[in-house]
């Protein structure tokens, strides 16, 4: 593969290292505390976006997964097409199309929050659908046989035997999906919604200081890292019980 030399150039200049400027421009937390109300409000927007999108995504995703494993072939293909489109294209493009292109066919989101929520939910549903599908298909087929053999209908067998077991199994991957969702909310800033990243960048330009960005990053970390550890712990516990 050919990479133009120009692309490989990184200048290393130890003389440029300036601890004082780093502290002033990126670790000036005084500035953040002065604008805590703005940052906190934006943080709440981010968390609400992620939580709501996760809930809606789980509902749509579960329906998509059930269609995928149980419905007639034509519906299965539709469900699969949905998943392919939303997983196979960048979320940033999806957000942009939803907000800037849909008005051309007469669908206009008047609320930025709702537009962002819609994009994140529709996108999240595709990932959740795959997680549920894998979870349902990972349940031993003897479970369905035992349920059907006892006289339960297919729907009853899914409802009482298969899905409750699948739910347990998908909690760790769903937690990871939620972590991805929390970070992906930052992409909604392209349409101008005042979520955490957007608010931090607005503060950055207003104060000519990068500290708000660092603060935003710390807030994302504070939410995501514990969740990552939680997902790992759940996963370990689950594996121990299965083994």
């Amino acid at each position: 593969m050919y990479i133009p030399p120009a692309l490989l150039q990184v200048e290393i200049d130890p003389g440029a290292f300036n601890p004082q400027r780093i502290v002033e421009n990126y670790l000036n937390f005084q500035l953040v505390f002065q604008n805590m109300d703005v940052i906190f409000a934006a943080f709440l927007v981010t968390i609400s976006l992620a939580l709501l999108a996760e809930v809606i995504g789980i509902v749509i995703g579960l329906v998509l997964a059930l269609i995928r494993v149980s419905a007639p072939k034509a519906l299965q293909l539709l469900s699969q097409a949905y998943v392919d489109v939303f997983r196979g294209s960048p979320l940033l493009v999806q957000i942009t199309i939803l907000y800037f292109t849909l008005p051309l066919i007469g669908i206009r989101f008047t609320s930025l929050f709702f537009a962002g929520l819609a994009a994140l939910s529709l996108n999240g549903a595709a990932y959740v659908a795959e997680i549920f599908r894998a979870g349902i298909q990972s349940i031993d087929k003897g479970q369905m046989e035992a349920a059907r053999a006892s006289g339960l209908s297919y729907v009853q067998a899914m409802r009482y035997v298969i899905i409750p077991q699948a739910f347990r199994r998908v909690i760790p991957p769903l937690t990871n999906e939620f972590v991805a969702l929390v970070k992906d909310t930052s992409l909604v800033s392209v349409i101008g919604l005042a979520e955490l990243l957007r608010a931090a960048r607005v503060l950055q330009s207003a104060t000519f200081n990068g500290t708000p960005l660092i603060a935003a990053a710390l807030l994302y970390l504070a939410v995501c890292v514990p969740l990552i550890y939680l997902a790992n712990a759940l996963d370990r516990r689950l594996n121990r019980r299965v083994a």
Partner: peptide, 25 residues
């Protein structure tokens, strides 16, 4: 029907395994 691999429902107690079908069917 009794299976070689038992196929009990792992998320239910012994009792719940037994009462599921009578209650639902």
């Amino acid at each position: 029907f009794v299976f070689q691999q038992f196929n009990l429902y792992p998320h239910m107690t012994a009792l719940e395994n037994i009462i599921l079908a009578p209650m639902k069917v």
